[in-house]
């Protein structure tokens, strides 16, 4: 609008044509050309590939040659009972990860901020960060050495006190607890940093004033620290909820591997999509379940972002 207005007053400031703009910004355009090409190839073209969800994919015929089957892939995904199971697992695990993770990270952040012994604090924090740097493959190897039925440390210690060995790899019900523990083990050291930084930014005078009023440490923690952390907690919680249907493939795939006994309690959408993709007859259903997940993810992210925008636009994703 303003450009058109400017043209009327001063013909010299006429809006440049598209090609003039391109010519003027050619270096910038070249600089972003490869990244743009990159997302076209690796993100946008696969988005077009969602047509696979409506086809019976045959390797021989390719994506375009394979016959259309309407909603059959979705029907199969839901009727086989897999859908209910993997959606429930994905949701419940994520809720447990988000809630337990947040409680423990906030707790660690508060505790770390109150500790006065600098060396203890530094060393403890370094130790807590170690699992963050390790891949899930390595974690899987470690978990095996701790939990394995024949040689595992836990069964070893149990035998040492005269207990019966437990075969956790045949006990599906134990895995929600093991996986939540592993998630916290791997992520809490890194996750608490953001809360710790937040606590450090609290004005020390507030604590001094509370000291003078005779507040004890529990009162100070609940009335000052937690109150101060609350906005961050709410925002991070909502943003995490936006990814409620996105499972941590690496974790579930590496820790559980192909242990069929554990699958009822540990199969999530992402591992299901992957397994279906590998068995050539289920490629269509793999695409359908993947698309179903993508749509759910899109809706939850938009919802989460909408709520965040209402609370504090500064933290909105876009």
């Amino acid at each position: 609008m303003s450009a058109r207005f400017a043209t009327q007053i001063n013909p010299a400031a006429r809006k440049k044509t598209f090609f003039q703009q391109v010519a003027q910004n050619r270096t910038f355009l070249i600089m972003v050309a490869i990244p743009i090409l990159y997302v076209i190839v690796f993100s946008y073209i696969p988005m077009g590939g969602i047509i696979l969800a409506f086809k019976d994919y045959k390797y021989r015929l390719g994506i375009f040659g394979s016959p259309w089957v309407g909603l059959n892939n979705f029907r199969y995904f839901f009727i086989s009972g897999a859908a209910g199971r993997v959606i429930r697992n994905t949701l419940l695990y994520n809720m447990a990860f988000i809630t337990a993770g947040m409680i423990i990270e906030v707790f660690f952040a508060i505790v770390l901020s109150e500790i006065r012994n600098r060396y203890f604090k530094k060393i403890a924090q370094s130790m807590m960060l170690l699992p963050f740097f390790i891949s899930w493959v390595v974690v899987s190897s470690i978990v095996y050495s701790v939990l394995s039925y024949e040689y595992g440390l836990i069964n070893n210690l149990l035998a040492g006190v005269g207990g019966e060995p437990v075969n956790l790899y045949a006990l599906p019900k134990a895995w929600p607890f093991i996986l939540v523990f592993l998630r916290i083990w791997k992520g809490a050291g890194y996750g608490c940093i953001i809360y710790l930084a937040n606590i450090t930014s609290i004005d020390p005078e507030i604590y001094e004033a509370a000291d003078i009023d005779g507040a004890n440490i529990w009162q100070k923690t609940s009335a000052i620290t937690l109150q101060h952390l609350r906005p961050t907690m709410v925002i991070l919680f909502l943003l995490a909820m936006g990814g409620m249907f996105r499972g941590d493939f690496g974790m579930f795939y590496q820790i559980i591997r192909n242990n069929g006994t554990l699958l009822p309690y540990t199969d999530i959408i992402d591992t299901f999509v992957f397994r279906a993709l590998l068995s050539s007859s289920d490629v269509g259903m793999s695409a359908a379940s993947g698309l179903f997940q993508s749509v759910l993810c899109f809706i939850t992210v938009m919802l989460a972002n909408f709520v965040v925008t209402k609370i504090d636009p500064d933290y909105a994703l876009f």
Partner: peptide
Amino acid sequence: MMFFYFTTLFSGGLTPYYIL
């Protein structure tokens, strides 16, 4: 920027990506 950002909101999933 929106063109880039959209790819973090929606994806075609693993299957089409893998076949591509």
